[in-house]
C-alpha cells in the first residue's frame, strides 16, 4: 500500500474483501448485558496480508472487544469475521491453527518453567516430537530466555514474562498475529527487543494486528493505523497520510482531536 493511501472508514463495509486480505471484519456489533451502548457498532476492518496494522483507541473504545471477536474468544451479536478468507464461525479450528494471540495479561503458568510453559502450549497447538523441540528452542532464542529456560516464570522480571508471552503466541508460526498491548509495563530494553522482533516477523510475511496506548509506538511500528472510538473505526490510514489529511502536526494531537480530551474512566 502506498504510504499516502488514506481510506475513509466505512469503505470496508461496502465491499467484499480482496484476495490479499488476511483479516476482515464486516459490520460487527457487540452489546454487553447491563450496558446502554454497544461495545462495537458497525465495526469494519481490513488488514492486508503482510501488513503491520495498529489499532489505537482510548479506554472503553472497543479495542479489546474487537480483538476478542477477531480471535474467536467470543462471537459478535452480528457481523462476520474472515481470517485468510475463511469465515471464523465456520472454520474455527483451521483458523486457530494459523492465528496467534498475545494477550494483554501475561497468560503463563507462574509455577512452571519457561520450557514447560512452551511445551504445554505447543502441544495444545498440535505440535509434537522434533518439531516441538525445535519450535521451543527457536522461541527461547527469540525471547532471549535460553539461559532461563529451566527457571519458573514466577522468578522472571516483567520484561522476561512479556518476551515469553510473545514467544508462546508465536509457537504455531501464525500467519496472522494479534497482539493486545504486548509492551505494557516493561523496560526500554525489552520493548526495543520486542519491537525489533515484531518488525522482523512482519518482514518475513506475518500479518500483525497490534493494539497499543503508545502512539509513538504505533507510529514507529505500523504501516497503517486505525483509530477506534465508540465501537467503530473513526479514522484509518498510514501515519503519514493521517497527518497530511488532517493537517495536524503529530499523531497524539490527531488522536485527541478524534477521540476528545474527556477522561475515559470506564
Amino acid at each position: 500500500m502506498d504510504e499516502t493511501t488514506f481510506m475513509k472508514p466505512g469503505n470496508a463495509s461496502l465491499s467484499e474483501p480482496g484476495p490479499n486480505v488476511a483479516l476482515c471484519a464486516r459490520s460487527l456489533v457487540k452489546r454487553y448485558k447491563n450496558s446502554d451502548h454497544p461495545a462495537l457498532h458497525n465495526f469494519n476492518l481490513d488488514v492486508q496480508q503482510g501488513e503491520f496494522y495498529g489499532l489505537l483507541g482510548p479506554n472503553g473504545a472497543g479495542k479489546t472487544t474487537a480483538i476478542s471477536i477477531l480471535t474467536g474468544l467470543f462471537p459478535p451479536d452480528s457481523g462476520i469475521v474472515r481470517i485468510m478468507g475463511m469465515v471464523f464461525r465456520e472454520r474455527q479450528n483451521e483458523i486457530k491453527q494459523i492465528l496467534g494471540l498475545v494477550p494483554q495479561n501475561i497468560g503463563l503458568y507462574d509455577k512452571l518453567t519457561a520450557r514447560e510453559n512452551l511445551t504445554f502450549f505447543g502441544k495444545l497447538c498440535g505440535i509434537r516430537g522434533k518439531k516441538l523441540t525445535a519450535r521451543i528452542q527457536q522461541s527461547l532464542v527469540f525471547s532471549r530466555l535460553t539461559e532461563h529456560a529451566l527457571q519458573p516464570v514466577a522468578t522472571f522480571s516483567t520484561g522476561m514474562k512479556r518476551r515469553l508471552n510473545l514467544a508462546v503466541g508465536l509457537l504455531n508460526a501464525p500467519q496472522v498475529l494479534v497482539l493486545d498491548e504486548p509492551c505494557v509495563g516493561i523496560d526500554a530494553q525489552s520493548r526495543h527487543l520486542i519491537h525489533e522482533q515484531l518488525q522482523d516477523l512482519n518482514q518475513r510475511g506475518t500479518t500483525i494486528l497490534y493494539t497499543t496506548h503508545y502512539i509513538e509506538e504505533a507510529q514507529e511500528l505500523c504501516s497503517r493505523i486505525g483509530i477506534i472510538d465508540n465501537g467503530r473505526i473513526v479514522e484509518e490510514g498510514t501515519p503519514t497520510a493521517l497527518l497530511q489529511q488532517s493537517g495536524i502536526a503529530n499523531l497524539e494531537d490527531l488522536f485527541l482531536h478524534l477521540t476528545g480530551k474527556e477522561l475515559r474512566d470506564t
Binding site: G72, L73, K96, L101, P103, I106, G107, F121, G169
Partner: peptide, 13 residues
C-alpha cells in the same frame, strides 16, 4: 484470573 484462559480459548483446543 491470570489471563491464561484467554490464551487457551484462542488455541485450537
Amino acid at each position: 484470573r491470570s489471563g491464561i484462559s484467554i490464551r487457551l480459548s484462542a488455541l485450537p483446543v
